[in-house]
Design a protein around this nucleic acid. Structure first.
Lengths: 195, 195
DNA sequence: TGCCAAACGGAACGCCGATCCGTATATTCA
DNA sequence: TGAATATACGGATCGGCGTTCCGTTTGGCA
């Protein structure tokens, strides 16, 4: 095993050209398929769209979660980076928190089935869960702490719990026009505020 | 109403004894299996526990939802009937609403996967969804209207939306000790109150 | 007791995720 | 340039599940 850097960065032994091409095709096909049929779309369908065999999917993305993460990584990063920016924007911390949660909700409700997958206990999705938690909970915690310190909200709610609650409220948001996830999240945040 | 469990109406032509016995076995086996492995437990497992073939399950309960409804019908009825009782109990309508939601949450969080199934868009579960909506939303609406009329809460939230929100918040409540669905629901209700 | 509709059980089918291995090819080196 | 070899490919295959279907069994009744 010595020398074979399975790591992701600079020391990686440079993949074959067709491998890189296929990985790209897969990302594009998956992005399309997720929009068209949700993140639960059958693996074979993604493979078909990308013009590769199913084996190739599993070689590049060992779990469905890994594929989802890869497809949405940019957007998650953007959301994470928006947190500090909103805090620094001059608005009250509570407003910053509300705006940030809005971004998160916008992201979730436009991805069919992503909110569901995030909360699923399916072993396939633990990676997905872990990624979102790792990346976004600290950001949320920062916003939460600032708002609490400013005396604008209750201080007995953990970031993880709030994010799970918000994520849960987004489930099925795109299925039933009578259910407005944004409004429910607004209610949750209203309950968080001190008066 | 002297007859066996689900669906025996007065005009029903009286089922065979073995059929009634099997239906009973299935209900018991399903109740056990739901507790042990959640409402997504494989059909074959329920059939095995009950000592019948899979065909027999489908004959008695054409969809998984029908089986779930049959297993939990009593508890859902009790919850539905508790609504008017709480309203009449002398507490403020808002307290009555909170107590009733508590009952609903208690029911949901103790049934592995039921909250998930309730919000699932799987075609198999539309019956389940419909039953809960039909039976509980009117009760919730009554409580909501009373509280709104008393000026205790906002009046722009529909019962259906509130119940879906509460149901969503209960998802995964039994999986992660760091997530307390009850507390999140409390937050949601706090956001509903006028100050 | 004998008949037959009702009910049963489980084999069989289709769909899906996941794996595995014979084949094809990009890259390297002489 | 032309092998040699590691790398990657593709799809056949397996196991699990929901659902259907049909030959067999059995309870109820005349």
């Amino acid at each position: 095993m010595a020398g074979t850097g399975s790591g992701s960065e600079s020391s990686a032994p440079r993949k074959r050209a067709d491998a890189r091409r296929n990985e790209q095709s897969l990302l594009e096909a998956a992005a399309e398929a997720f929009i068209a049929s949700g993140v639960d779309v059958p693996v074979r369908e993604i493979a078909g769209k990308a013009g590769v065999g199913v084996g190739t999917i599993y070689r590049h993305f060992p779990t469905r979660a890994a594929l989802i993460v890869a497809v949405y990584r940019h957007q998650v990063e953007a959301c994470a980076e928006a947190g500090p920016a909103l805090l620094a924007s001059g608005d009250s911390p509570c407003t910053a928190l509300a705006r940030w949660i809005d971004l998160f909700v916008d992201f979730l409700v436009t991805k069919h089935g992503l909110a569901e997958a995030l909360q699923s206990d399916d072993a396939t999705f633990v990676t997905l869960h872990a990624y979102f938690i790792d990346r976004l909970v600290p950001v949320c915690a920062e916003l939460l702490a600032a708002a609490a310190e400013a005396g604008e909200i209750r201080s007995d709610i953990e970031a993880l719990e709030l994010m799970r609650g918000v994520g849960n409220l987004c489930i099925g948001a795109d299925k039933d026009p009578r259910y407005d996830a944004r409004r429910m999240v607004g209610l949750l945040l209203a309950g968080l505020r001190l008066h």
